[in-house]
Write a protein that binds this DNA or RNA. Structure first.
Length: 204
DNA sequence: CAGAGGATCCTCT
DNA sequence: GAGGATCCTCTGA
């Protein structure tokens, strides 16, 4: 008989998603569980690494300076939905939209620790090495079955992709973000955060 | 409507 | 550690 140790339905509330992006990232998303139920398969990972992007003033953000295009429009919605975009011809990247309607803030999930559905993740990634299943924004989307075509704009308080509250406090580290050399004075802002003790980080 | 480049990953050296 | 893959999105004409 399976003993359910954790309740993965402790949804993070809309109020919290619509609050400050840095507070959401540090206090609520780091250590929380990113859950997906795609093609009748449940996969869950504990969020271990993320980056904050602010559309209003942050030159690294796709929506800077409050730029509105087809792609960025979803970031202007109320916090609590997903911004999933496509890069390099292959990879989806999953972001949590943060803040009130009209503010284009996003939190890129860069790594999770595999928790539930590890065999499913291995199959989707065609990879046995557990360290390479979910470390990196493209990898974790593949492992959790998240794609820009199907999941961009999806409500994170729904039943397909959701985030369940963390169960304890974690200490974390802040570092500059990855792959944003074009962002001038925002290039070195330490807006990447990761769990101090986690082995599942894309880059130290 | 063509061209350039990307919030990456994998392979090979 | 360098280079190629690969296709969507935005820009400018």
């Amino acid at each position: 008989m399976n003993k359910v140790r954790y309740n993965f339905s402790r949804y993070i509330s809309k109020e919290i998603y619509q609050g400050d992006a840095f507070e959401l990232a540090q206090k609520h998303l780091l250590g929380a569980y990113l859950c997906s139920y795609v093609n009748d398969e449940l996969t869950i990972g504990r969020i271990s690494e993320l980056e904050v992007y602010i559309g209003e003033y942050d030159k690294a953000c796709h929506a800077w300076p409050n730029k509105r295009t087809l792609r960025t429009e979803i970031m202007y919605h109320c916090g609590g939905c997903a911004y999933v975009f496509f890069v390099y011809g292959k990879y989806s990247q999953f972001n949590v939209v943060a803040g009130p309607q009209g503010k284009a803030n996003a939190i890129l999930i860069r790594s999770v620790e595999p928790v539930i559905g590890i065999d499913v993740m291995r199959r989707r990634r065609q990879c046995d090495d557990i360290k390479k299943l979910t470390t990196g924004p493209g990898r974790l989307c593949q492992a959790l079955g998240i794609s820009c075509k199907e999941h961009n704009g999806i409500d994170l308080c729904g039943k397909t992709i959701w985030i369940s509250a963390k169960e304890k406090e974690y200490s974390f580290i802040s570092r500059p973000r990855i792959g944003i050399d074009y962002a001038e004075e925002y290039r070195d802002k330490p807006w990447r955060f990761y769990l101090e003790d986690s082995l599942f980080i894309s880059k130290k």
